[in-house]
Design a protein around this nucleic acid. Structure first.
Length: 393
DNA sequence: TCTGGGGTCCTAGGACCC
DNA sequence: TCTGGGGTCCTAGGACCC
């Protein structure tokens, strides 16, 4: 018996990737940045790293995630921009809107990346390549920002295609040519294979995705466990993960690395307070509450730990967040110098906040206070209203 | 040159329940 | 008195991505 299911239809998937997104936005805001080496990120004096860099900077070996001090050494004429992250979100929304006019199925994978399901849109937009060309032009028209596009029969192959054709280009991988397209690529081109997995693979003689696809599965499982088969399927360009609108967040977090390591308990506690405020405020904005509170701390030798606790009821109250985070941190901290602290809420529950008619007046007051505080912060930034116990400035 | 901040997903052990 | 197997939740760590 053969049953038709939508999954069995030949899919057409596009992956849009904005070209050095942060730098491109900064160049729109300040055209003097055009044509010169630019990096967006933290200060080279402190512990900043490169978040995004222009192709002119890449010529000197500058890469994202590189310490800014090193980037400046490699490229002394580098112009460093600290980054206007709320502006990036605005442009990301514009990109999303534009893409939504091409398909009802658009999934933002990050601020500067999206998957679009074009299956069944041929009558509207024509063949895959012409649809892609129209999308690229539409994004450029709406945002003045360049992007690259990969088009294939699934998300995996589309993503690899867009990464290989940047900047400002298109690459179409026709149905049936996925495996041959992947075969000669180095293993670290496969999304999910990072530094560690690539090293492990190299050690067993696997250099290319073709090598990986034909490697003995049992021997591979020795290093990658249950993931071995999946890894090999992906190495052949096989992937059936769906494109999903409005994927709910799994976590809300805030963290900060200090300019100098600290052993000052009062300072560390006040930092936790600021982080808890930030996380609670964002949860309330997004109408979610967290069942599990996580505190993250990193020692000066980069040793990183997390400690978490699941509450009996989900919360978006910064007092509860703060008390939990402080208790978790102080029960584990061994007084060695700390370089990073973070607070997160996970196990999120999404729910329109409607006050229970039976809610006691005190709860109601707290609710109104929170909303008012959030509104003020929305207008003037987090610094405008602080809890009595939060003393960072 | 020591390594940001926001996330996602996976694994593995132990508790606990049926 | 000893011994099951399966499922789910919690916790901690790690790899990876933009």
């Amino acid at each position: 018996m053969s049953v038709y299911t939508p999954e069995q239809r030949q899919r057409i998937v596009a992956h849009v990737d904005m070209d050095c997104f942060y730098v491109s936005v900064e160049r729109l805001l300040n055209p003097k940045l055009n044509g010169i080496p630019v990096a967006v990120g933290g200060s080279p004096d402190g512990r900043g790293v490169v978040a995004s860099c222009s192709y002119e900077a890449r010529k000197f070996g500058v890469r994202s995630a590189m310490p800014m001090a090193k980037a400046l050494q490699l490229c002394p004429k580098l112009t460093i921009v600290s980054g206007s992250f709320s502006r990036y979100s605005e442009f990301s929304r514009k990109v999303h809107e534009t893409l939504c006019s091409f398909s009802p199925l658009v999934q933002m994978a990050s601020q500067d990346e999206a998957y679009i399901d074009l299956t069944g849109t041929e009558r509207l937009w024509g063949a895959p390549l012409s649809a892609a060309q129209m999308m690229r032009e539409a994004v450029l028209k709406a945002t003045q920002l360049p992007c690259s596009l990969g088009i294939a029969t699934n998300k995996l192959v589309a993503k690899v295609a867009s990464s290989l054709c940047k900047p400002a280009a298109l690459l179409y991988i026709p149905p049936g040519s996925e495996a041959s397209f992947f075969r000669r690529l180095p293993v670290d081109h496969l999304p999910g294979v990072g530094v560690k997995s690539a090293r492990t693979l190299r050690e067993i003689g696997v250099e290319t995705l073709g090598d990986l696809a034909s490697f003995d599965t049992k021997r591979l499982a020795h290093h990658f466990g249950d993931q071995a088969e999946n890894l090999q399927a992906r190495a052949r360009g096989e992937n059936n993960s769906p494109i999903v609108n409005d994927v709910p967040a799994r976590q809300v977090s805030a963290e900060t690395t200090f300019d100098r390591d600290s052993v000052d308990r009062d300072f560390l506690f006040s930092v936790l307070s600021g982080l808890a405020e930030k996380v609670a405020s964002r949860m309330r904005r997004d109408d979610c509450r967290a069942s599990t509170i996580v505190v993250k701390y990193r020692y000066n030798n980069f040793e990183t730990h997390t400690a978490s606790m699941t509450l009996s009821e989900p919360t978006d109250d910064e007092g509860t967040l703060l008390d939990t985070a402080r208790a978790l941190f102080s029960s584990r901290w061994n007084n060695r110098p700390i370089r990073l602290l973070g607070v997160a809420g996970t196990n999120l529950v999404f729910e329109r906040r409607q006050l229970d008619i039976l809610a006691i007046p005190a709860e109601e007051r707290k609710e109104k206070l929170h909303k008012a505080v959030d509104a003020l912060r929305g207008k003037h930034g987090y610094g405008i209203v602080k809890r009595g116990s939060s003393a960072i400035d």
